[in-house]
């Protein structure tokens, strides 16, 4: 009997070790596996009709992050937003950067590095425009209207800048139109290809989901509370990792679907005041010299001094 129990424990430990070892990297570091192997009852071992090796063979081959080379297209993970369509329809994961300049951006593009995988590129644009100081409000409204016309929306705004989110397929067209709102002082475009990152996340997610399914089966067969607690603890860890991966994938999907364009306005510089003053001085003639003092006329006419109001009104004078 004791020998049988030892055999069961060994089998369970082997199964857990294989399960946790075949997933993503974090699963390899799972410290619970050896302990569980020692404590789990031999009854938890996989049945003969469901060999672990068979399950492992059926699971997709995981690839380490950063690996290159052809990869199979991963199916849509449950609970996730629809992944980028392979072709047709509104594709957030378009590739305007790879399209010929001047050509209309394709709705989607295949990743040449990973055949069968959509390209996911996050576009970020920046424009510093010089406009008249009094036109800030009007130009910002024009920029927002432009984004809305192309199916975008406003992501943020200050007194002299606005952050726009526009569909990636309209990125270049919107940039070209925004450049006409003023004199371009600085222009920047950044394209970050996250297709590979997204694909790696997909693979890791699929692997974790498969592991979770297998642990779920172990949980159904658990006979002791200790076994249940141990497996549930592992399930909790797996679910946390799955949630993190799904969140990251949602973020990448959203970022690649809409590009970010930041438009910053600068006021046109006014001419230096000193120059203005000098020009004004040139225009204005110098003030005329003060008029000379009135010339004193000394007429040789004595009676002129008698002509005055006082003399006229002095009736007593003879």
């Amino acid at each position: 009997m004791m020998a049988f129990q030892s055999y069961r424990r060994g089998a369970l430990a082997f199964a857990l070790a294989v399960l946790t070892g075949c997933g993503a990297a974090p699963m390899k570091d799972m410290p619970m596996a050896p302990q569980m192997a020692e404590q789990v009852d031999a009854g938890m071992a996989a049945p003969a009709d469901a060999p672990v090796s068979a399950e492992m063979d059926a699971a997709p081959v995981p690839m380490a992050a950063g690996a290159t080379g052809p990869r199979p297209a991963a199916p849509s993970p449950p609970g996730m937003p629809a992944p980028p369509p392979k072709s047709g329809g509104p594709a957030p994961k378009s590739a305007p950067a790879t399209a010929p300049r001047g050509a209309k951006e394709p709705a989607s593009a295949k990743n040449p590095a990973a055949p069968g995988v959509e390209q996911m590129i996050i576009f970020t644009g920046g424009l510093d425009l010089e406009v008249d100081k009094g036109e800030f409000g009007e130009k910002l409204h024009d920029a927002i209207d432009l984004a809305v016309e192309h199916g975008g929306y406003i992501g943020g705004q200050t007194d002299n800048s606005v952050t726009l989110r526009v569909p990636s397929s309209h990125f270049r067209a919107v940039m070209r139109k925004l450049e006409k709102l003023g004199d371009v002082l600085h222009r920047s475009v950044n394209a970050q290809d996250v297709s590979e990152q997204y694909f790696d996340l997909q693979v890791r997610l699929k692997s974790l989901l498969a592991t979770r399914d297998r642990l779920q089966k172990f949980l159904d067969r658990a006979k002791t509370i200790d076994e249940v607690l141990r497996v549930e603890q592992e399930l909790t860890r797996l679910n946390t990792q799955i949630d993190q991966l799904q969140g990251r994938m949602r973020f990448l999907s959203a970022q690649s679907a809409y590009s970010t364009i930041t438009v910053a306005l600068r006021a046109r510089p006014e001419p230096p005041k000193e120059i203005v003053k000098r020009e004004e001085k040139k225009v204005k003639p110098p003030p005329p010299p003060p008029p000379p003092p009135p010339r004193t006329i000394s007429m040789p006419i004595p009676w002129l001094s008698d002509v005055n109001l006082d003399g006229l009104l002095s009736l007593g004078r003879k």
Binding site: P294, T296, I297, M299, I301, L304, N308
Partner: peptide
Amino acid sequence: ALDAHLRR
């Protein structure tokens, strides 16, 4: 002449 004288 008279006007100049009176103005002065």
